[in-house]
């Protein structure tokens, strides 16, 4: 008993020493986290306070106007929804398809598959404005020649976030244990049956999270869309994918650069709307992840 007591005392000394570092490290981590949270909270509070006077239904129902009293963001909100809809319709199938091919079908020994992988990593880091130039040259004009339309904007943003969708989907597919696949094959399933019935369902939470975060990035982009001809004054909503459009970030950018103060209030209110759309999308991502999560 005595010897145990002595070693306990030594242990206590040691553990006090360890506690010191343990706490210190934890404080450092909290500090790092705090910087992010404080920045976010400050931003949200500031736009809430500044935009509060214009956070009313007129913001949602009125169209842009030179008179800040009656200006609203309806065409921008609808434009954002249309453009992101097209982006989603394009990136989700293409991105998931590419991820399935790279993870389940591609032979990693082949140089072209490795080349594609390397390219994807690099594409994810290309600045948004470059995709705008690409979109202007090949989608708005040239090869596809779609004009300055919702469809062109959606496809451009689709290209922009496609690498992110592919990479996150691949991670999700990679996380499915190999034993599941082997089990399926052992029961005589084909490759497609294995993917369709085992791998995809198991990876949906990860794919959904990655995809929605990628779309959240697309929704905040202004620069590439200004380049491909997003408008700043448009008093009607898109009626089809061939309509001209504006999106919230462009509208906000336009209002912020106006000399009248009232437009800045309007811009802050529009930022709140954009944040709400973003948070709703992120909430959906979390909901999907929790709903479909399975443990092995």
């Amino acid at each position: 008993m005595k010897s145990i007591g002595a070693s306990a005392a030594r242990n206590e000394l040691e553990s006090r020493h360890r506690d010191f570092f343990e706490r210190g490290f934890m404080l450092a981590l909290i500090f790092s986290l705090g910087i992010g949270i404080i920045a976010l909270v400050t931003l949200i509070l500031q736009v809430l306070v500044e935009g509060f006077p214009r956070l009313n239904s007129e913001l949602l129902t009125n169209f842009p106007s030179g008179n800040p009293e009656i200006a609203g963001a309806q065409s921008a909100i609808m434009g954002t929804i249309w453009v992101i809809g097209v982006t989603a319709a394009f990136t989700i199938p293409v991105g998931i398809g590419a991820a399935i091919y790279l993870e389940e079908y591609a032979d990693k020994e082949r140089w072209w598959n490795r080349f594609i992988e390397l390219n994807l990593q690099n594409l994810a880091a290309v600045p948004a404005i470059v995709y705008g130039i690409l979109g202007l040259a090949f989608i708005v004009r040239g090869f596809l020649g779609l004009g300055q339309t919702v469809l062109a904007a959606g496809l451009t943003l689709g290209l922009l976030v496609l690498p992110i969708v592919i990479i996150s989907s691949r991670e999700a597919i990679k996380a499915v244990p190999d034993t599941i696949r082997q089990g399926a094959y052992a029961l005589g399933a084909t490759r497609w049956q294995t993917v369709r019935r085992q791998v995809l369902p198991a990876s949906i939470p990860g794919i959904a999270t990655g995809t929605i975060l990628a779309l959240s990035r697309a929704i905040g982009e202004a620069a590439p869309l200004i380049l491909i001809g997003g408008l700043t004054f448009i008093t009607f909503n898109p009626e089809s994918v061939n309509s001209n459009f504006t999106v919230l970030p462009i509208q906000i950018f336009n209002w912020v650069s106006r000399p009248q103060d009232e437009f800045r209030v309007l811009a802050a209110a529009a930022i709140v709307v954009l944040l709400v759309i973003l948070l709703a999308m992120n909430a959906l991502a979390i909901f999907l992840r929790n709903k479909y999560q399975r443990k092995y």
């Binding site: 809809g85 989700i92 469809l151 019935r197 995809l200």
Partner: peptide
């Protein structure tokens, strides 16, 4: 899940096509 996802994709494509 894949069925749901596929339905969603099909719906969005239909929306685009209709547009």
């Amino acid at each position: 899940v894949p069925l749901i996802a596929l339905t969603m994709i099909a719906l969005s494509l239909a929306l685009v096509a209709a547009g």
